[in-house]
């Protein structure tokens, strides 16, 4: 009977009472039964989570007046900041003009893409921003394309290169990458969660929240392990990109350009015919996707998430 979080002396009396409420006694059984969490059905759960997400993104509803006040106070400094930001922006636009289109396109390349070499080269020369943040974005793109292990490894290496106390995060990601090696196909829910966690880590790194980065990485490792423990064939409904043969649930990889990013070496396939049964496949998936209740972009997934 020690699942209650004890608080030294405060607890004594309660436990005393519960001593004769051992399992088997009527009171003991009743207490155990009350402690068993109720089950929430899945559609209720996903509705609640979607509503909560909507509310968070809208921000606090009360306290409007004080927020407005804060904003007004900030604008005095804000104008100065905007002026600086404009200059920085102008400078980077000029730089982009010099480096030319190739660099811009290459900058969004992921490992394995033809332009990726150009991307890293330009970073080495110091022209494009590069750095951990961009590595993490690349890792996201890899995961979206179902190259989970590579993505996690890239993220782990990028974070590991920083040292500064990020070692646990790097280790967690590396471990997750190793575990995910055998997996060639993952659920859309997992990919959404994993990419969002990487984004969370990017933000936490910007804020120098080292512990939080490490914890998020650990969470990502746990999520990955749970995903791996789930039975195969989660993506039964997925369509296969005819261009590259990559399984793709949403085909988000390939729109809107005529070239599938997953297989850009295939060149400019003809726009519409690029996917196997684009129409049927597309609608199938959006239907199977927990009925997307006002979910918006990321909240389409259900609460299941394999927790």
């Amino acid at each position: 009977m020690s699942t209650l979080n004890g608080n030294d002396g405060e607890m004594e009396h309660f436990d005393e009472i519960l001593e004769d409420a051992e399992p088997g006694t009527p009171l003991g059984d009743a207490v155990a039964q009350l402690r068993t969490p109720a089950t929430v059905n899945e559609s209720t759960a996903s509705n609640h989570i979607a509503a909560a997400l909507g509310a968070v993104r809208l921000g606090p509803t009360h306290d409007r007046a004080s927020r407005r006040y804060r904003w007004r106070r900030r604008t005095v400094f804000g104008t100065a900041l905007t002026a600086i930001a404009t200059k920085v922006l102008a400078a980077s636009v000029a730089l982009a003009a010099v480096t030319g289109g190739v660099g811009v396109v290459a900058n969004s390349a992921a490992p394995g893409d033809p332009l990726y070499g150009v991307d890293t080269f330009m970073e080495k020369v110091g022209l494009m921003n590069g750095g951990t943040q961009e590595r993490l974005e690349e890792a996201e793109r890899l995961i979206i394309r179902n190259r989970v292990s590579e993505g996690l490894e890239l993220a782990g290496n990028a974070i590991g290169a920083l040292r500064d106390g990020y070692e646990p995060a790097a280790a967690a990601l590396e471990q997750a990458a190793l575990q995910a090696q055998t997996k060639t196909q993952t659920s859309e829910q997992y990919r959404a969660d994993a990419t969002e966690m990487l984004r969370t880590m990017t933000r936490q790194m910007e804020e120098k929240q080292i512990n939080l980065v490490n914890e998020t990485a650990e969470q990502l490792r746990v999520t990955t392990r749970q995903m791996l423990n789930q039975p195969e064939s989660i993506d039964d409904t997925s369509t296969t990109c005819v261009g590259c043969g990559t399984p793709s649930t949403t085909c988000a990889d390939c729109t809107p350009s005529t070239t599938c990013v997953g297989c850009s070496d295939q060149g400019s396939g003809s726009g519409d015919g690029h996917h196997g049964g684009d129409d049927t496949g597309g609608s199938d998936n959006s239907g199977g996707n927990t009925g997307g209740d006002t979910g918006g972009d990321t909240s389409g997934g259900n609460g299941g998430g394999g927790h």
Binding site: I49, A52, L53, V56, R57, A192, D193, E196, M197, R199, T200, R203, Q219, T223, T298, S299, G301, G303, G304, G305, H307
Partner: peptide
């Protein structure tokens, strides 16, 4: 920050 996985 409204992360889906965290609310789940």
């Amino acid at each position: 920050t409204g992360a889906d996985w965290a609310w789940s």
